[in-house]
Nucleic acid binder design. Structure first.
Lengths: 220, 220
DNA sequence: TGTGTCTAGTTGTCAGACAATGTAGGGTCA
DNA sequence: TGACCCTACATTGTCTGACAACTAGACACA
């Protein structure tokens, strides 16, 4: 294994920082992000800001209309459903492929165990990280760069969705159990069973999240 | 229906022009695109060029490593397979959804008819346009913005793939017939049948294209 | 009430510059 | 001759500063 230095460009560093702030809720849904404000607060040049914004727009974490400031999207119940509608085929295709192989997936196994070790008192952002780490481990195990790219293009929105609606979030232990079920299904080498478990896992998540989104809409 | 003016920004116009030139084969696979050269040839500023390049990279039409010029990727047989591996779940999910509804899809119908009217003498790029128009019409008919976004993120590469390997391309009439079969399957309201036809359509395409890619690899 | 005008704020685009990095050619040494 | 190093060039990454174009909101007016 070669050691890899990963020099991070200013653009990328800025994009990551904004991403973190958006996902942590520090930058609230609906708030605007004028370019000059970012220039001032980060001390970088405007082209750098613009590139970083373009990156985040691609990831679905920001919206931009011509001649308007970028802003953080507010997820409606319909948007939540749509995110999971588009996500489902990717996750199911992944699980099916892996179950056909029936091989151990060390990264996914590790993710499940980390999740289980977390306990119900953990901070919600840790739980989200552990949750998505499992799904990403599955996708990566398939070995399809393009499938991974498609998933990455949705991952930001999935996180955003959870970040904005986190009161609906399960307790970590329940989720970890669901993950273990999926992984066991894969290793059992039965595509239909594994697929069914993943489908259930996703359905449950989307039910909870849309429910919470509807509540929030009523309150507002 | 509101009438929409679509003023095109310089960035977008540049991205489109480059996209067309890449897909037409005018800019060959493997060739480099230094930023300053684009600045000179198009008479735009460098930030504009960089934004356009970033767009195309996101669409898979260009590759960029840090401190290197962007270049057009050369598609290996493995890459072709991977494109279709990632594409399949999107297309099949789409077809399944539409077949469950069983409703007429005017845009897709129109695309099939345009394809059939094309005749076998048409230029290959017209055939590609007609082909993708059908698939895009199906995806759009679903009404999921995110599914459409995922498909769009792959569409560039699908086109690139066909553009680079076009000698493997079927005669338009055969493809149009396959499309009609898929559409009929959807309108018959039978998800499994519709899905099977789409799967066959995709399998056939990937067989032809990887075959051609392997040939080319041998020649080189 | 509805229309037109003005202004401030913001984005879209341009020009020019410099440092850091990657590449290729030539020269040195074994 | 072949391997290695080193310098010059090409290119990207980033910055500064600038101006035009556009949007939205406030205001005056019919």
């Amino acid at each position: 294994m070669t050691l890899q230095l990963q020099p991070v460009s200013a653009t990328e560093a800025l994009a990551r920082s904004l991403r973190d702030r958006i996902l942590s809720g520090e930058i609230e849904p609906g708030s605007r992000l004028p370019e000059l404000e970012l220039v001032r607060s980060y001390g970088v040049a405007r082209p750098t800001v613009r590139e970083a914004l373009q990156l985040l727009v691609h990831q679905g974490l920001l919206q931009r209309r011509p001649n308007h400031s970028a802003c953080v999207p507010e997820l409606t119940p319909a948007a939540v459903e749509d995110i999971f509608y588009a996500r489902a085929p990717l996750e199911l295709h992944t699980v099916r492929t892996l179950a056909e192989r029936g091989e151990e997936i060390p990264a996914a196994r590790a993710a499940v165990e980390r999740f289980e070790a977390l306990g119900d008192k953990a901070h919600w952002s840790e739980a989200v990280d552990a949750d998505l780490a499992f799904h990403v481990a599955l996708i990566d195990a398939v070995g399809s760069p393009r499938l991974a790219r498609l998933h990455a293009a949705l991952e930001g929105e999935i996180r955003l969705c959870i970040a904005q609606l986190r009161p609906a979030w399960h307790t970590p232990s329940a989720l970890a159990e669901e993950h273990r079920q999926v992984l066991d299904g894969i290793l059992a080498g039965s595509p239909p069973a594994a697929e069914a478990r993943m489908r259930e896992h996703l359905d449950k998540a989307v039910r909870d999240l849309t429910g919470r989104a509807r509540e929030r809409e009523r309150d507002a």
